[in-house]
Design a protein around this nucleic acid. Structure first.
Lengths: 211, 211, 211, 211
DNA sequence: CAGTAAACGAGACGGTACGTCAAGTCTTACA
DNA sequence: TGTAAGACTTGACGTACCGTCTCGTTTACTG
């Protein structure tokens, strides 16, 4: 989340506890206040830390919230439920349950909005949140290939494009359902969505770029 | 966007030009500054209007930006390209081209983020932006039914659920592709995406709730 | 103390009560806290005014304190005690009694210190505090001339130099006695000092520039 | 300037060079920045010393600056120019030349201002700066008595009062001339001032407490 | 000549105040 | 009554120093 030159060996070392306290306080403040009313002074107070300590480690509200929210996604993992469809449903449900948390709802869309005008922030989100979860798609696919549910990938470039498409469709649909439509992404919805997605992708393998 | 009691007949009437000027100034400011640096004082100045005038018509930044962005979506229409797939590709491309506008990118996600903690704002977005475009899905479907590409809807409740699912998938995927992945939703991508979606939905008709 | 273009006729006018409240609060804070612990935020709070209102009218702590202290000196006046020596003793005692006020002690030397590196501030002090009181020296001299205690001034240039010298000696001695030596400039001291000064000046008239 | 218990005999001794470096850096910073912008962190950096080292030796900015400025006055000495008037002119000119140094101007008045609310600081200034120079007055008087220019002192108490008065008048006038009037205390001015002072004091001897 | 205790540099730490900025309200004169 | 102008209160901003602390390192005296 931040790094100093490894050469700096001198001086008082940064308190490692402060990082964790600040990120936890940030999530707590997101729940209580939401993004727009969250102030760094308040986060510092909640964390029992001076404002300067916070600014020494994060450049601003955006970066702080990205890191605080990103930690929520680290617990995602691909369950082994025996079939591709069931595996995917499981991970989509996990994703939906994270997006149901108020600390994620409030913060995530806001930093995405900020990222539309801030390339570095966009990169940080991609690195901390998005790319970190792409492993799930890859893992799910290779597991399905091992089961014989999917054929091996022929072309790496087209494979990457497919992963990206899947990710945009899954993440986009769940986010839109949860935040814009404000309806729960519950088991029934996830089941329907996964069905449409997998059937569509199955066809995609047959008609990779036709009309 | 605002209403006065019909009884107020006395006094100086509100300038109708001011509304348009303010909304245009808002979009201009969104382009120049983005959501977070946009200030109502600046919008008022750009519109050649006093801050008081602006506050008399909108409750705050959120409401103002929703209205300013909503106008952008009014130009969406369903082209008649001869087939369901082609029609959908056309409207998705239009949607993507709106999301490519900086005034939409900056503002839309931000108000969605705000809406996670503001029921009234969420309703305003749904009314001004989302529901207004659901007509496209309905129109596309009935046109396809007229062409014989789709069977008539049997059950209105399941029909509504399907429309919602389609909308979440289309809007979500385009938004995610555009704003998070920060890749253009160009013809090639839209073609692939539409293919997956329609094939998936075609199967959905056959297995409406299978396991 | 501050002036706006006379053309600004529009907009809400500045509250005239705020000026007085701020200056009084400044003196109060000088008494309670002294110069170095006085903060503009605290002054604003005491005055029942927002910090921005204060900054709209004064550029900073220095300018504010000069104005607050200058008002203290406006009450100085030359008593008519019947003789030059008695008149001067009277005014020196008044001056000493002002310097005995904690709000003057704390603030005056501090702004003089600041003024060593700020030409504009030095000018403001001279205009607000020093020059405003030179009238006392001039008035005392003309009154003494009317009484026949002093001869009429021959040369205006040398006259101005003499006034400056008197002022430096009177103000300097009282300030040093009060603030550095930290002894009271009481009647006995003022009497001795005035005696030395007047006898010295009487001689000066006879030997205006001897070697 | 600081003292440690004589019992501390063990451990690394304080660097004697650091004291000198810090005081010199303080004067340098006074010249460059003036009192109010001088920071102890900056002084430490200029002295090539850590902030902790500085705080181990001085309690704060006030004490540090008093010591740094006091050193400037140590070079004052009474020249033997053959007459009381000439001797005094000489020493007043020296005093004026010190007050003309920016490091003295900036710092001296500021610490005097601080001293109005800090008894210990006032005592430190008196010990380091004022009393140290009173020797000049005493020395000048005894030399003049040796020359027969002044009668021997009859009463020690009245003598001390006279020394104090002289000191307040000399130091006060030069300081006011230099810092408030912001005019140079040059030879011509010093000559006029000294003339007034000595003639006044000569009379004082004749009328020690009359009107 | 090893042990020890203090001084030292570096820099993080909890604070306080800074001066600025925007939000949203209020007060004026004018239309 | 609506409007433009701009003063008003409020509260957060991000920065700068304060004076303290905690490190790892250096340097004299001492046993």
């Amino acid at each position: 989340m931040q790094s100093r030159s490894p050469a700096s060996r001198t001086g008082r070392p940064r308190s490692p506890a402060a990082d964790a306290a600040i990120l936890a306080a940030t999530r707590e403040a997101l729940v209580d206040l939401g993004w727009s009313k969250l102030t760094l002074g308040d986060v510092a107070t909640r964390a029992g830390v001076a404002k300067t300590t916070l600014y020494r480690r994060w450049a601003g509200k955006n970066e702080l919230v990205v890191d605080a929210v990103a930690e929520l996604f680290d617990e995602l993992e691909l369950p082994d439920r025996g079939s591709l469809a069931a595996d995917i449903e499981g991970v989509v449900l996990q994703f939906a349950s994270i997006l149901a948390l108020p600390e994620a709802r409030s913060g995530l869309m806001a930093v995405v909005a900020e990222a539309t005008r801030d390339e570095a922030l966009r990169e940080r989100i991609r690195a901390s949140v998005v790319d970190r979860q792409k492993r799930l798609v890859l893992e799910g696919r290779s597991r399905a290939q091992a089961r014989g549910e999917l054929p091996p990938e022929p072309d790496p470039a087209s494979s990457a494009r497919t992963v990206d498409l899947i990710f945009d469709m899954v993440a986009g649909a769940v986010v839109h359902r949860t935040l814009v439509s404000a309806e729960p992404a519950d088991e029934e919805w996830v089941h329907r969505f996964t069905g449409v997605l997998l059937r569509g992708l199955a066809g995609e393998a047959a008609h990779p770029a036709d009309g």
